[in-house]
């Protein structure tokens, strides 16, 4: 039992080393205490924050933006990627758009989107969709290209139409690559949401962060960063669970 715990500690040694180094720096007072609070203080503040409505109000706003943007991107991106692999015309029309649009930092469009869609959720969700679309489409496309031709031929032979082939053959066969794309897109969605909320917003985790940092109390800022980190980590774990559930054969 003790050995098991010790092995777990050894696995996560780097985290503990980082924490200890942080605590030593904080305790020795190398940096001013206002700028470099002890982790225990931060955890306490984070706990207080987690019990307050301040966190939950802002978190729910951010999550709505992240999830709706991410879902829209997935719903558009996956069929487009699969269609690109099946129809030559679609591929020829989309391929140039992808190769031009992919390397451009689309975040720079945000100030313009604010003009078009207002400062509320609309512009933020639209930017999240734009940013998530590319990794999803590209990964789906390359995954769908690698689908074994025999499966497609067999389903055609048995008289499946396009819709049926999409649901029964292409989608399951591409699922692992689709999840690779989603795995890249999900953190991006959270980043874009928080970033745009930091630039201009009155609610959301990004707003909470800039609100806390304007008070210059570093414990509060670190606590909200820690909470955001936990949210990001939980989201990636949830995606893992979903992936294991859906792609049990992989």
């Amino acid at each position: 039992m003790i050995k098991k715990i010790w092995n777990k500690v050894l696995d996560y040694q780097s985290i503990f080393i980082l924490l200890i180094v942080w605590e030593i720096i904080a305790a020795l007072g190398i940096m001013p205490e206002r700028l470099f609070p002890s982790m225990f203080v931060v955890i306490g503040v984070a706990y207080d924050l987690a019990l307050s409505s301040l966190l939950w109000d802002n978190l729910s706003v951010t999550m709505v933006r992240v999830l709706s943007g991410f879902t829209i991107a997935a719903v558009i991106g996956v069929p487009v990627g699969i269609m690109m692999s099946r129809f030559n015309l679609m591929n020829k029309l989309m391929q140039p758009m992808l190769s031009i649009g992919y390397p451009i930092p689309r975040v720079a469009l945000y100030p313009i989107l604010v003009f078009m869609l207002g400062i509320g959720s609309g512009s933020k969700i639209f930017l999240i969709v734009l940013e998530c679309l590319f990794p999803i489409i590209i990964n789906t496309y390359y995954g769908a290209l690698r689908v074994n031709h025999i499966y497609v031929w067999a389903s055609q032979n048995m008289g499946a139409n396009h819709l049926k082939m999409f649901w029964k053959v292409l989608l399951p066969a591409t699922a692992p690559s689709i999840f690779t794309g989603l795995r890249i897109a999900l953190p991006l969605a959270l980043i874009i949401s928080i970033l745009t909320e930091m630039i201009s917003s009155t609610e959301g985790m990004g707003y909470l962060l800039s609100f806390m940092s304007s008070s210059l109390v570093q414990e509060n800022v670190l606590a909200s960063v820690m909470l955001i980190a936990i949210v990001g980590y939980l989201m990636s774990i949830i995606l893992d669970v979903i992936q294991k559930k859906f792609i049990f054969w992989h």
Partner: peptide
């Protein structure tokens, strides 16, 4: 643990340091 975190959240901290 650090990969899924939005690093932009660290900006206010780094700004103070």
């Amino acid at each position: 643990t650090l990969n899924p975190i939005p690093k932009i959240a660290l900006l206010p901290i780094l700004m103070v340091w």
